Simulated scan of single mutants.
Amino acid sequence: MKTVLAYGDSLTWGHDPEREGLRHARADRWPSVLQAGLGEDVLVVPEGLNGRTTSLDDWSAPCDRNGARSLPVVLGTQMPLDLVVVMLGTNDLKPRFGASAHTAYQGMRRLVQIVRSFPYKPVEAVPKVLIVAPPPCGPSDNGHDSDRRVPESQRFAALYAQLAGEEGTGFFDAGTVARPSRVDGVHLDAENTRAIGAGLVSPVRELLG
């Protein structure tokens, strides 16, 4: 059996914008949909955390949201792994972090480096990486729009595709299959969350061989 780690933020955790603070049903979260599409020969391990960034500290949080700092713990817990799917960057655009897609691009590069340099057992069992660009943010009905967040989030796909080419990883643009809810302009309803899982089945199968 092959093992896939789904590493992300609230979009991976399954945050339901219609029910603030609550999650979509397990079957509606994209890692579960990906699991169903891949079948019993592959195990998808969901690792989503609300507010997780690629590599930035958020000292207002009740737990460590720095993705670069927590990733080695997750890799050590879940190894051996065949593939690490990373969908992060949206939280890097929070105003207090400076709202830069390029910051997320740099943070994502660091995550790729961490995956490849971790001391796995067996040592040759280095997993492949699939970089996923989160769906761009959109207008919201709650008045929490950011002048920079929406256009910066629209840069994710091009920057992450460039990074995938530079680092030799897989790439998938979740914005081609999903759009955020107008409730907050960031999170996804169940249909769009499921669409990401379905869209990832083919690229994940290809990387797993």
Rank of each mutant, 00 (worst) to 15 (best):
L38T: 11
P31H: 00
E40Y: 00
D92F: 06
L75F: 01
R96G: 01
R116V: 08
D58L: 09
L71P: 01
L56I: 15
P95E: 13
T90E: 05
C63T: 15
L81Q: 07
V85I: 15
P62E: 10
V74M: 06
W30E: 05
Q78K: 06
G67V: 14
P62V: 13
V112M: 09
L83W: 05
D57V: 06
S55H: 13
V73I: 08
Q35H: 00
H102F: 15
G37A: 09
V44L: 08
Q78T: 11
P31D: 04
G98E: 05
N66R: 12
N66P: 12
S100L: 09
N66E: 10
Q78C: 14
P80Y: 04
F97P: 02
Q78Y: 09
M79C: 11
V86H: 06
Q113D: 15
V73E: 12
G48L: 05
V112N: 02
P62W: 06
V112C: 14
D82Q: 09
V74F: 02
V115T: 11
R65V: 12
L43K: 08
R65S: 02
Y105M: 13
S70Y: 01
T53V: 07
N91F: 08
A36V: 12
V86L: 15
V85T: 14
Q106E: 15
A104E: 03
S100Q: 11
L38A: 11
P46S: 07
T54G: 05
V44G: 07
V115E: 04
P62F: 06
M108A: 14
A36E: 12
D41G: 12
M79I: 03
L88Q: 02
L111H: 03
T77F: 02
Y105D: 12
V73L: 09
V86T: 15
L81W: 06
P72M: 01
T103R: 10
H102M: 13
R110H: 13
V86Y: 02
V115W: 02
G39K: 04
T90V: 15
A68K: 01
W59K: 11
L43G: 02
M108I: 14
L93E: 02
T54Y: 00
G51T: 00
W59S: 14
V44R: 03
L75R: 00
G48K: 00
T54D: 01
V84Y: 05
L83P: 12
T77D: 11
T54N: 04
R69Q: 10
P46W: 00
V112L: 12
M108F: 13
L49E: 04
H102C: 13
S100K: 03
R109E: 15
K94L: 13
Q35T: 08
A101D: 08
S100G: 10
W30Q: 06
T77E: 12
D64P: 10
A101C: 13
L93T: 03
T54L: 06
L111W: 05
G67E: 07
Q106T: 14
L71N: 00
M108R: 06
G39T: 11
D58Y: 03
V73C: 04
L81I: 12
V33D: 02
Q78L: 09
G48H: 02
S70F: 01
M108K: 05
G98P: 12
Q78D: 09
D57G: 05
I114E: 04
M79K: 06
A99P: 08
D57R: 07
L34G: 07
G76F: 06
